[in-house]
């Protein structure tokens, strides 16, 4: 079996490597991918169209905003799927369940937690503040909704790892993080629907400038990008924590690792 796999892998790799002569050289600015009119357009016109210097954010949240919107939906569906998969056949009444194996006393001892607890108390607010910076500053520096959302979700995961899942779930219970995840998608699609209602295409933000008379179409695009990034960050942060909380507790949301 191993030999069959090895031969298949070597054959596939050999096919790809044999085509290597036709690939563009490393760093070739005029390779087909880099010289394509689409990429050139993004680099040249982003600042004109929306005034956003970070092209990656502009392409993500404006030019390819359909992709990003359904990307967010994919993340949401993945989180819901994890909850569903882990809970199928789990409908044993709470009392009939075998008692969870309690951790050794030394682990639960609060006096052991001083260093970890203090570190987390200092680290988590900084992490969350940094997450907001990454989300809000995504127009001008590397960042955006996905990155900031992951940092924000990580801060909750850190709390769950350091203090146990139950205290973390007290702060962010399941009813709340599921709501946050859905609100993120709703925020994103609300921007699209608002454009539709104002007579433009779905997610064509330029028309939103009529809502705020002081800004022009390019600024409307810039601000709408921030809005949809916030929606993305809501969903991603909630689902990151949901994935951890459910995987760490086999979907039972108690005890944890």
């Amino acid at each position: 079996m191993k030999w069959v796999g090895l031969i298949a892998v070597l054959f596939t790799g050999g096919l790809l490597l044999s085509a290597m002569d036709d690939f563009p050289n490393w760093g070739d600015a005029h390779s087909p991918a880099n010289a394509s009119p689409v990429s050139q357009y993004f680099i040249e016109k982003t600042i004109e169209d929306s005034g956003v210097p970070n092209m990656v954010t502009a392409v993500l949240a404006d030019y390819r905003s359909y992709d990003t919107m359904f990307e967010t939906v994919v993340v949401l569906i993945a989180g819901i799927a994890i909850m569903a998969i882990l809970r199928v056949g789990n409908q044993i009444p709470r009392g009939a369940r075998p008692a969870p194996v309690s951790a050794p006393a030394s682990v639960n001892d609060d006096h052991q937690d001083i260093i970890i607890g203090t570190t987390c108390r200092l680290l988590i607010p900084v992490l969350q503040l940094f997450a907001f910076y990454v989300i809000a500053h995504g127009h001008h520096s590397p960042g955006g909704g996905f990155q900031g959302g992951v940092v924000l979700g990580t801060s909750f995961i850190l709390a769950a790892i350091a203090k146990g899942l139950d205290p973390a779930l007290e702060r962010l219970p399941e009813t709340r993080y599921v709501k946050i995840a859905f609100v993120g998608v709703v925020i994103y699609s609300a921007f699209g629907v608002a454009c539709l209602l104002l007579g433009e295409n779905f997610l064509d933000y330029g028309v939103l400038s009529v809502l705020l008379p002081t800004i022009d179409a390019a600024e409307a695009r810039s601000h709408s990008m921030l809005g949809v990034e916030v929606g993305v960050a809501f969903t991603v942060s909630a689902i990151m924590f949901a994935i951890y909380a459910n995987l760490a507790s086999k979907g039972e949301l108690e005890g944890g690792l």
Partner: peptide, 11 residues
């Protein structure tokens, strides 16, 4: 365009 790497693969 030659001054900036291609944003599309990053996205």
């Amino acid at each position: 365009p030659d001054d900036y790497s291609n944003p599309l693969p990053h996205v």
